[in-house]
Nucleic acid binder design. Structure first.
Lengths: 136, 136
DNA sequence: CTTGACCTTCCCGTTACGGGAAGCCCCACC
DNA sequence: GGTGGGGCTTCCCGTAACGGGAAGGTCAAG
């Protein structure tokens, strides 16, 4: 009777992750498989679920450390949903910071692009700006 | 009479960059200073201008490779402004991709956060989603 | 018995630097 | 003439989250 143990390749396939990533998560202590007599990693259903959980969390941009926290809340059936919510809100705040930064950069770049003729002549407000000329 | 050569510390200060960064730009072949008899890097006005140029270009999020291209256009007085403009447009496109990605993630996260009570109870739509439950 | 597809560990590369060690160099001060 | 404290040099490690690839063990099929 098979114990349901999967090799890393099968586990990775079921979780939808590259084998390298699964190995990395092991090394990082996120999902620790057992080991067979031959030294192979052995993944059970629980581990496969955790791997898939990690795939989705990473897909939302949570860092490995945030994933570690999420995973431990996932396994803690006595958790407070507030703790999970806080992690998600932190991630939203991170995203908002990045969005603001990128929007600002985009604004500046678009203005420069619009000011540039973009023809065969060398005159270029973009380079002028990068070389520090005042553009009042 | 001083030849106007600056040590890396002074050049970095004038360009508004950390010394480590200036050294990195040397190693990367972006701004190559001369060398004094004692082996010290020697920066002239031209090099300092290039360093400041790089600071501004990096500030707009151009990669080192894009900076290399910008710098070579900056020095090529026979350039076509269209080439500069194209680099800037590429950067805008990059930013737009990132913005779209982040806005999508933000959307999903906010929906999950809104659906979560965030109290002391363990029930959490966020974890449900991460663990793969259907949420129709 | 031998493929060939797995698996293992280990090491390097990615981006754009920052931190820190070990060892010269130089200027000021006593 | 020392000596101290900067500043300079190179070199190596660490960052985040893996990917690529080498060298070698294992296993089921033919």
């Amino acid at each position: 009777m098979s114990s349901g143990g999967l090799t890393i390749g099968d586990a990775a396939a079921r979780a939808g992750l590259p084998v390298k990533t699964v190995r990395y998560y092991d090394e990082a202590g996120l999902v620790r498989p057992g080991r067979g007599a031959n030294g192979y990693r052995v993944y059970g259903e629980t581990e496969v679920h955790k791997l898939a959980f990690l795939r989705r969390a990473r897909g939302l941009g949570f860092s490995i450390e945030a994933c570690r926290a999420l995973l431990s809340l996932y396994e803690d059936h006595g958790r407070a949903s507030a703790d999970v919510r806080r992690l998600a809100l932190d991630r939203v705040a991170q995203i908002d910071d990045k969005l603001a930064e990128l929007q600002e950069l985009r604004q500046v770049l678009v203005e420069l692009v619009d000011a540039c003729q973009g023809d065969t002549r060398p005159d270029c407000p973009i380079l002028d700006r990068l070389s520090g000329e005042e553009v009042p």
